[in-house]
């Protein structure tokens, strides 16, 4: 266990610009065909960006596809199948795409093509141009880390906690990786890695992580 890291943790923030594809889907089958063919940035937009944008409410559908299937198509079963695709579990967008597509395919096999969306309620595929920007906030110790964490945006939090899984080292979030590798605190790393994005808002997660750090520090002093 170390008090100060050799490599400071630099907080980045993430901003996205939404792009329009002009592609739309009016049924479950068209949605599946779209998911098969659209570029990765479109899958990213309707899963990761959606999740962060809607972080202020819990529980919330974890992706745009599930929201549309339930609310616009009126197909609750399909909506549930898509809701069960756990966006943040996937370490690459190709696997996430396959899981989404497979969920719709299974539903269509069982229920047939089903209903069509009413006119004007089609699903519009949009993409994302994603920008990661370094912020002025950095930390070498747990105290500095908690202080910086209070100041950064929730977009930064999402980037380091959930989107980190799309980057090497896969599967682990940036905070846990730094706590374990730089400060030798595997228990804290494990607690942060176990946070559930679907039952907390990002502000809730921020508060939780800060409380984990404070507990870690108080145990260290005891």
């Amino acid at each position: 266990m170390k008090e100060r890291a050799e490599t400071p943790f630099r907080f980045f923030t993430r901003l996205t610009l939404t792009t329009l594809t002009g592609l739309r889907a009016g049924s479950g089958r068209e949605l599946m065909e779209g998911i098969h063919t659209v570029p990765d940035n479109v899958i990213y937009q309707h899963t990761h960006r959606f999740l962060q944008q809607h972080q202020f409410l819990t529980p919330e559908p974890p992706n745009d596809f599930a929201y549309w299937a339930t609310q616009m198509l009126g197909d609750e079963e399909l909506g549930e199948r898509l809701t069960s695709v756990d966006t943040v579990r996937f370490s690459n967008l190709a696997e996430l795409r396959r899981a989404l597509s497979s969920a719709i395919e299974k539903h269509l096999e069982k229920r047939g093509d089903g209903r069509a969306a009413p006119a004007g309620k089609e699903f519009h595929f949009t993409g994302a141009v994603r920008f990661s920007i370094p912020t002025p906030h950095a930390a070498e110790s747990l105290t500095e880390f908690a202080e910086a964490l209070r100041k950064v945006s929730i977009a930064s939090l999402y980037l380091h906690i959930y989107e980190a899984r799309l980057r090497p080292p896969h599967v682990i979030n940036d905070f846990s990786n730094w706590f374990e590798r730089e400060l030798g605190r595997p228990a804290l790393a494990k607690k942060v890695a176990g946070l559930d994005p679907y039952t907390h808002t990002l502000e809730g997660l921020r508060a939780k992580i800060i409380s984990f750090i404070e507990q870690e520090e108080s145990h260290g002093q005891a």
Partner: peptide, 13 residues
Amino acid sequence: PSFAQKLNIPQML
């Protein structure tokens, strides 16, 4: 998103 057209330039929202 529904305002998008088929254009040969990037379209943003």
